[in-house]
Design a protein around this nucleic acid. Sequence first.
DNA 1: GAGCACTGC
Length: 964
Amino acid sequence: MNFEKPSRRNTDRSKVSRSRSPRTSRLNSTPLFFKGTGSIKNPSETPTRSTPQHSEKEDYGPEYKALEWESRQLIDLEWYDCEEGANTMKNEDDFAYREGVAESRREKKVKLGSLKKLERMQDNDKWEINRMVSSGTIKVHAKDAYDEQDEEHRVVLMVHNIKPPFLDGSIVFTTQLETVQVVKEPNSDIAMLARKGSAVVRIVRERNERSKMRDKFWDISGTALGSMLGVQKKIEEDFSKYDDEGNLDYKADSQYAKSMGNFEAVSDFARSKSVKEQREYLPIFSVRESLMNIIRENRIVIIVGETGSGKTTQLTQYLYEEGYTSYGIIGCTQPRRVAAVSVAKRVSEEIGCKLGDKVGYAIRFEDCTCDQTIIKYMTDGVLLRESLNESDLDQYSAIIMDEAHERSLHTDVLFGILKKVVLRRRDLRLIITSATMNSQKFSEFFGNSPVFTIPGRTFPVDIIFSKTPIEDYVDAAVKKALEIHLQQPPGDILIFMTGQEDIMATCVLLNERITELGPNIPKIRVLPIYSQLPSENQARIFQKSDLRKCVVATNIAETSLTVDGVRYVIDTGFCKLKVFNPKIGMDALQITPISQANANQRSGRAGRTGPGSCCRLYTDTIYREDLLENNIPEIQRTNLANVVLLLKSLNIGNLLEFQFMDPPPQENILNSMYQLWILGALDDLGELTELGKKMVEFPLDPPLSKMLLEAERYKCSSDILTIVSMLSVPSVFYRPRDRESEADASREKFFVPESDHLTLLNVFTQWKNNGFRSDWATNNFVHIKALRKVREVRAQLSDIMKSLNIPEISCGNNWDVIRKVIASGYFHNSAKMKSIGEYVNMRTGIPCILHPSSALFSLGYAPDYIVYHELTMTTREYMQYVTAVDPYWLAELGPMFFSTKENFQEIERKRQKEAKNRIIEELVASKNKEENKGQEDEVKGSGQIVMAGREPTPRRTPRIHPSL
DNA sequence: GAGCACTGC
């Protein structure tokens, strides 16, 4: 509060009659500053800002409005008089003016005496308004709320944008406006089609919403059908991970391997032949000698090999047999966990050892290796982590990067790192495997390394392009599938779709049309598959069936899993891609045309077990001219904060000079460096700080690791550990389609009113208090799988904390401290209330709203300041996981963005001065207005107040004392 | 008053 209230006002109170006219009593129940529009206005604000809204007159009438406005001036005048008047009015020239003001004041006092007490009632009114806001009767608008806090007890945060010196004027954050181009030609037919989407899907969606037969639409893959087909539900708990005290041993041996293997097909070939025979049957065996020669002579070799050539399983064994393991071990990276585990399992069988002995694997949460291990399969992320602790990767004598053409973020970073390691270590062999398309590029990147091609064993695939561009890819795919089903010889069909909704619509339509054709038509088994589908339903695509199978899949079937028996592929030409949109600063999933590489990969799926054909639902011309040759590598379209942190900790001074195969846009790097600087991981020179060095240790996003480390200071590390772990898994809340309200009610029981983060903590704590029981989870609509994952993550993070000597302490119920720690990692995602449920990002001004699942959503009042975990753009921009924060915290924790007013006394003094000047001007103007009766009549007639202060007042311009 | 391409540490 900057303008002190005059003491005189208090003394005046006693003189004012307490009787109420009907009008004033109404005013009392609906406070003066409560506008008819349903917003709050501050009573003591300056006249310029108190222009009543048009709708007001409907409630109170113009006369009241005029009175109200004048009464405010009166109050303002009084305050002016007693606070500064004496100084200001000393000048003789101002005498007449002062007289005029005083006269006006006396008149008004008489006329408006009864209204004056409204000011006295201010506190009462505020209380009432608070009640009304909390009951949801009225809405609070941001500006008004701002004004109120401006004048009263609330804090005002100043927003600014201080840049780190090392960026030196470089572009950061919101100024980067270009979206990464993921389409070759944005105006091409196929790009337009991608934006348009499928009309049939919309029809199916609407139809199902209308008929409320959503169950049919959504639960086609549901449990009823699943159990009918004999899919066994796995209920038994796996306790092998827990030690005697019930603690979680997340590194327990071969977890993943145990849970796998259920669906592995054992072919007749495998049954009838010995391991040796099987190995010699593989295409790679025929080129073994020449391959080994090339590897012996070159330190880096690029190997091109189709799937099924045996490179993944044989290469490691060849190197072992050639003696490369005499001075180190052989590492082989895979982009996926499943692949790393299953290949390791297969190779251990071929060599004839126990998994984890000579042959092992390492993925997150599971290190299935020992001192004897000489062949180690792992995910690329694991190798990247290892390179942090051991920058020369000394334990390896050879590293194979398998499936490198997939260009995952980790692979791309490893490329740059390994290239340097090979220069330093003359004894290290590096082998990169790639698809045919970009082998040349790989070779060039690695200093023109030789490319060795292994003949594949795939069958020819007929490619059939559409003759004309199609209008609706879902409709066209359904027609094509029917055509194949009715006309072509046996063999399963695989359709590539973009997402869940497309897939379900396709399944529904396909089933419908088959039924329509009558009973004489052969049946078909339509099977959806996407990653979100429960795993028991996913497994159905591998089951044998007498009917022709038609698998409708997302990109998951392109690389992650192989459906055998597919002879026909239908390729819609689209996929969903996560694209970062810098304009709004968030990622969005959008339907985009695939690349030529995608298309080839998809068609290849038809030739796994025999010759096949692939129908592409786009023309030859589109394929050649409108599709990109390769995908945009992940590294070019993602947030690089973690990568930057990692490279910084590898002592790579200038990141812009790091050797990327496809360098990410410079702005992305700078942007990430800026984000790290904000969090305190980089100093003003762009070097890693002590905090940053610790942050690298955690496999977490920088804001989350910042939270964890900050928690030590506030003595709530244990609680934050839980929250961070909960945030690292998909939502734990289970909301089945037919029991939404039940699930919602259950979720609300966990709510902590001011914070979704604390709600998460609450869920975990209660689960823990109930002995980590799975039936507790099921009864409370919580995903048990997700919770178990939380435990795993938590155990891993806890280990890292121990290694950093950070004690695990819980703060008990001191939840304010926890909220503050959350703010320490997420102050950059802070938003200020605009109205209930609606916020604007403090820095960017982007409007964002509370997600209906948030604990704050149905709270009844809206905290002024909040931080959120992330923004998702679906139907609207929703904030996910929101916590109310104190604005002082934001200023304390994020000084580069925020400061409270107190820090800016200079600015504040100036602002006060301006405000006072304005009041005086308004008063003068108002007096002028009174003199002009005609004008006032006009005002009353129109029912609006025209602020006379806006008009020039040449006669009297008040002189302002220099001290003001 | 609400919806999920695919990975990974």
